[in-house]
Design a protein around this nucleic acid. Structure first.
Lengths: 351, 351
DNA sequence: CGATTAGTTGACTCTATTCAAGCAGCGTGG
DNA sequence: CCACGCTGCTTGAATAGAGTCAACTAATCG
């Protein structure tokens, strides 16, 4: 059972909050001021700390600072409790390294959501994320947090893009991060001959355009909308704050980038030596994995041109290979949408 | 002109050291104790600080701590002066965030080397590194520093490997970083059919095997010696300490990884759609860049098999293309070694 | 409902691989 | 010291695989 330390000077709020948490079967330790809070933290080593900012003796910042000086507590998620009016103070808290905040008055759901999401985040960071760019998405999702993300998305620009519209082009200067709310986007590079290689596809709840933000260069690919999309624009500062803010996150992020490099090298091997059949099969398997929802696999719905761009081949060649696969009962095609019948055989195709 | 702050309580050493630095045309500000040192630091904002550890009033650790609390001074390189006997203290200093140390008594060269290398490091971190994996090498070189590197290499295992010997294989568990002292090493992946793609080449003063250290996986490539090599083995902890130790380094490192991903995507585009001629040409240009020494270009001396592995093609095809290029006067071949005659035309070859 | 776009199939071409064979350089052992 | 065998380099011929061009059909959009 997860142990939560609650530090709050107001008796009513403290008892009330503790009750809610206990009902959600958390073990709760309470402290009535900052000093006592730090003592209890050192004694109990809680899994999460919820702490008021305005308190006598030792305020919330002090508590945060104290906990960060202890190796065993510095990675413990820290949530500030704050009144709506203290918005400026809150920023300060976040910059000091708090993970989230809850504004008083708050509902039980709000509280539990914040607690859950922070605990989950912590767990994920410890147990390791999914490999590859999947993991980056996961990491950014939990790091921005439901809270922050909602705030960001609510406050800032949400753009709607039509199919075929270009979001950014090669050579443009990157200064923001994109978050897909709905629709589908691809990023692609073009050859001198105009042949296109699709580098990635992005759907709802995915981030893109972060790689160029990490360097000082321009975009080296083009982002284009495949299906009408709503996209939230997040200023690059927010992204940098996230990535550089917390060492654990930075480290995870670096691990994911390293992973990605190795994946790309694997792909390179495939591009260099694989037969057309194998290239197409691998592209299909990759897409299948990406679009596998909780409720079973979803048919792949992409134009042949884009599919060819993913596999790295000519459109006609791709189509021929698809028909071959169909006649081999590896997949079915219905109104252009591809349903994979025998993923295993497809994945283990010989060259 | 670079400004250096020297903090040292012993009059002789102080005057002496200051003279050496002034002779090397640095502007030197001296302080006779820690307290005065901090005052002068805040006043002059030096480019580098050299500071004794054992001092009355405020010792070296205190100075370091004080400077780190100031935003404009916290990135200033900090070098400790220490007597040989104080080795334990020294570790403490490095952990507190000092960049280097010099043991008393020291020679003028020692002093100037340390100063130069630290200033260079700082400059590089500020102005940005060379893009791509080149930059990683650069970063790690300056970060470990001549000093540390020498120590590491002297203290630990240096292995000598013979040609064709395998350093690590796909599937092995990574637990160290490699540093090439002499010789040449390649890392490569193999296809199911046994076709090989060379992912990277490493020569003297280059590091390799760091990507898998950043993740929790096994090697996904094989490292093999091309020319008899001496390789220093660095424990992974040292690498992690470096990468995670300093936020500026972490950030640079992340930028370099991001850059690398984009480079790999560029390569992917090439592998997918480029003609054999172009693939070979690009491989050659890449190698030429890598082996361009200060004193003009050096001929490329690699087996045809490895060259083919780099370009991602069959050996025979590579050879044919090379002969074509030779008859087009793009390059010369002498005893198997390739000298590029017209790099520009080679780079701008159409597909 | 016409016009444009996407998907499909056929025929042809050509590039790059494969298989085969010869040659050159090198080290080794007799 | 030389012959032998080995390995690496090079060229030739045959082949197959994938790309290109073209024509046609189906689907989609205004």
């Amino acid at each position: 059972m997860k142990k939560i330390l609650l530090i709050e000077d107001n008796d009513d709020i403290r008892t009330n909050t503790a009750e809610i948490l206990e009902l959600a079967s958390y073990e709760v330790v309470v402290a009535e001021n900052g000093k006592r809070g730090v003592e209890l933290a050192l004694e109990h080593l809680p899994d999460l700390v919820i702490c008021d900012i305005m308190m006598p003796v030792l305020d919330g910042y002090g508590v945060l600072h104290a906990l960060h000086r202890n190796d065993r507590l510095k990675n413990t998620p820290f949530i500030f409790l704050t009144a709506k009016t203290e918005r400026a103070d809150l920023r300060k808290g976040m910059e000091l390294g708090a993970d989230d905040y809850i504004t008083k008055p708050f509902s039980g759901t709000e509280l539990l959501n914040a607690v859950d999401s922070r605990l989950k985040k912590c767990e994920l960071l410890q147990t390791g994320l999914q490999p590859g760019m999947e993991g980056v998405q996961q990491l950014m999702g939990i790091s921005f947090g439901d809270h922050d993300l909602a705030g960001i998305v609510a406050d800032r620009d949400i753009n709607t893009y039509k199919k075929k519209q270009v979001i950014y082009m090669e050579g443009h200067h990157p200064n923001r991060l994109f978050y897909v709310l709905s629709g589908k986007v691809k990023t692609a590079k073009r050859n001198d001959d105009g042949k296109e290689l699709v580098t990635a596809l992005y759907g709802p709840d995915e981030f893109f355009g972060y790689l160029p933000l990490l360097q000082q260069t321009v975009y080296r690919e083009t982002a284009e909308v495949l299906e009408d999309a709503e996209i939230a624009i997040i200023p690059s500062e927010d992204f940098h704050k996230l990535v550089n803010g917390n060492l654990a996150i930075t480290r995870s992020f670096m691990g994911l980038l390293a992973q990605n490099i190795q994946d790309k090298e694997e792909q390179l091997l495939g591009m260099a030596y694989n037969s057309l059949r194998k290239k197409v099969a691998e592209a299909l398997v990759m897409l299948q994995k990406k679009y596998r929802k909780d409720g079973g696999p979803v048919p792949i719905d992409l134009s042949r041109e884009n599919l060819a761009g993913i596999a790295g081949t000519a459109t006609e060649s791709l189509i021929r290979t698809l028909s071959d696969f169909r006649s081999e009962k590896l997949l079915e095609i219905d109104h252009g949408r591809i349903t994979i019948l025998d993923e295993k055989r497809l994945a283990n195709l010989l060259n």
